[in-house]
Design a protein around this nucleic acid. Structure first.
Lengths: 208, 208
DNA sequence: GACTTTTCTGGACAACCGTCAAGATTTCTC
DNA sequence: GAGAAATCTTGACGGTTGTCCAGAAAAGTC
């Protein structure tokens, strides 16, 4: 009880439970999307009953926002390893492109959920604060890649973090849709697109 | 009756009615989005009763797809004037950027509806055919701008039509969200972004 | 081991949904 | 203008939704 190592206050348990609920909710949300995933369906695909949702969350919106925040909080570090391990600009671009493709394959339901939520925020004002916050962390994530790439190349970025994120996000979204539509070659296409595009996000090498 | 000028077959009238219904449905859809716009709400904001929808459309999905197809069919020619009237590369880019900003301001509900539908198509397989078709026409639209810009510049495009569309669509989507969130400066930001980015979609001028 | 507090269950509720169909109304045809 | 065909209205249907709540069950406390 008094050991500092395992200190489990009631508040901690409560948070754990919220996390567990959100975790299984994410599965259903990724499968059905924001609008069609009912609280009953979410509860059915979990170990909880449908009533317990309102014990841990005020309403459906709070649950969904909590879920996506929780997922995105972990995945903003997806490219940290790429950034840390790369020693050449070409190597970084290749590793970055591979990682992009990997996450499309392995986490397509989570990504489409994110784009679903972001689209909904254009209609629902209550979603905007959360969406803008998450979007900013993703922009920062991309910028860590771009700025490291610039350093390794000895060149300066040719665009702002905002533009770099917008451009790459556009390509990513396009590839995600293509992948879900089972179009041939979209994944290799994305890899090629990123490799070709990345040099353009930097200014030409200075001749001196 | 036999005059060739005004030939109104019953089929024509039927199509006119569909168009009129879709037209007023688009208003509600642009306001509420795909999931939250019920057929009753759509009918209430129109001159029709809620039952008539099923007389002209098989189900809700067919109505929505018809609506978005109808809207996008007209707006794919939004930049045709820009392309036709421009005589210099700089003029084309400026006119293109202005037009992008203009449509964000004037048709934000329609654009968010399109992004909503495209996101939903990642969950609903029945939507994908229509979405991919529309996406292709938008890609063609953008490519008409880019290829004309290339010709006026005497330079070659540095990327495929697909990539050019993906990149610009990413920026556009970002600006649309920012505009709807009433962020300051997003519109001028988009204008600047497009002016700065467009030169990068072409290869450097050949020195000879 | 009794008492309190937290956690959970399962049902009930009102509201809303897409769809359908019977019948009223309008338009067309001759 | 009578009959036929079309267009439209209205109400009903089964189903689903988010939310709430009374009470059961479990956990914590002394």
């Amino acid at each position: 009880m008094t050991t500092a190592t395992v200190r489990r206050t009631p508040a901690d348990k409560h948070d754990d439970r919220r996390r567990a609920l959100a975790d299984s909710a994410l599965r259903t949300l990724g499968e059905l999307g924001y609008a069609r995933a009912s609280l009953r369906e979410i509860a059915n695909n979990s170990e909880f009953s449908h009533g317990v949702v309102h014990y841990y969350f005020h309403d459906k919106l709070e649950l969904i926002v909590y879920c996506v925040r929780q997922y995105k909080a972990t995945c903003v570090h997806r490219y940290d390893g790429v950034v840390a391990d790369s020693t050449t600009p070409e190597g970084l671009v290749a590793a970055f492109a591979d990682k992009l493709v990997e996450t499309i394959v392995e986490e397509a339901p989570m990504h489409r959920l994110w784009y679903d939520l972001r689209s909904q925020s254009m209609f629902e004002a209550d979603l905007r604060e959360a969406v803008l916050g998450i979007d900013q962390t993703l922009e920062d994530m991309i910028w860590r890649v771009v700025s490291t790439y610039a350093e390794l190349s000895g060149r300066a970025p040719a665009m702002t973090p905002h533009v770099a994120y917008g451009v790459l996000d556009g390509l990513f979204q396009q590839a995600l849709l293509g992948h879900l539509c089972e179009q041939e070659g979209v994944l290799d296409g994305l890899r090629t697109q990123v490799r070709d595009l990345m040099p353009m996000v930097l200014l030409p090498a200075q001749s001196r």
